[in-house]
């Protein structure tokens, strides 16, 4: 049984406080959904947990099975069992999926010979054409192929806890289902704990969360079961606005102008 414990996590970007004390515990086999309005700090949370440069942790702690994640560099967090499926998986020209998995310290002592059949099996399982395995990482892949690719990496690396950051963006219905099913299966097969970050319910129809949390104003403003997501669908996030949210005209600092979301989507 593994446990990711986020306690009083505070973080800022460029001197601006985004996370104001996030408390969340995710255990093996559990699926937690973090929902919230744009600008609430959802992507900041995922980036801070993985250790992306550019974020300053100003308070709180994050431990994985007791180990202090915040003290670790990014690659050690991965080796400790944390995985981040990215909203916009980065293109790495000339670097193949195999190169990455082969050199990941997160695969432990798995040999190349052992890795290859696992890779092919996972590709088959999620409907990822083998020819795409020879392509450079995320280069010339569609949105759906990129997310299938992320899921293959997740499945091969077998982390303890996976953060799925807006994994539904740029995803067609079929891919959404394939990815969700594979992740859900991992919760049963390998006891994967999942933190899924989304602002749409559609993903949660496929990936059934045990716990739903609302992130607003930089903290968890409400927690509940699946019914909370349904409620949000109807009433929106207005109830969770505590005045600390940024003014409507301001753009989410995490907004990727080249991403799939439209500009209108991304203003508060």
């Amino acid at each position: 049984m593994s446990e990711l414990v986020i306690s009083g996590l505070e973080a800022s970007v460029g001197g601006k406080q985004i996370l104001r004390g996030v408390d969340l515990t995710i255990r093996s086999g559990e699926v937690h959904a973090v929902m919230g309005p744009n600008g609430a700090g959802k992507s900041t949370l995922s980036h801070v947990l993985m250790g992306k440069p550019g974020y300053e942790v100003t308070g709180g702690s994050v431990t994985l099975d007791g180990a202090d994640l915040l003290a670790m560099p990014v690659w050690d967090r991965a080796a400790a069992g944390l995985f981040l499926a990215m909203q916009y998986p980065t293109e790495v020209p000339g670097v193949q999926l195999r190169d990455v998995l082969r050199h990941s310290i997160a695969t432990g002592d798995v040999s190349i010979d052992e890795l290859e059949p696992r890779l092919l099996a996972e590709a088959d399982r999620i409907g990822f054409e083998h020819q795409f395995l020879d392509r450079a990482m995320n280069v010339d892949l569609s949105g759906g192929e990129k997310k299938r690719n992320e899921t293959i990496q997740l499945a091969v690396l077998q982390p303890k806890i996976a953060i799925l950051d807006e994994i539904d963006s740029g995803l067609d219905v079929d891919a959404l289902r394939d990815v969700s099913r594979r992740v859900e299966a991992a919760t049963e097969e390998t006891g994967l704990g999942v933190l899924v970050i989304t602002h749409y319910n559609k993903l949660l129809d496929e990936l059934h969360p045990d716990h739903v949390h609302v992130l607003a104003g930089g903290r968890i403003a409400a927690s509940g079961g699946a019914e909370l997501a349904a409620e949000l669908e109807v009433s929106g996030y207005a109830a969770y606005s505590d005045g600390s949210a940024r003014p409507a005209a301001e753009i989410d600092p995490d907004w990727d102008p080249f991403g799939d979301a439209t500009f209108a989507d991304r203003t508060l």
Binding site: P53, P73, V95, H103
Partner: peptide
């Protein structure tokens, strides 16, 4: 690109090489 590879558990020395 660095962050992506680091996040997959590839140490910096090898990530830069790749």
């Amino acid at each position: 690109q660095r962050f992506f590879l680091h996040a997959r558990g590839v140490p910096p020395r090898i990530a830069d090489r790749l």
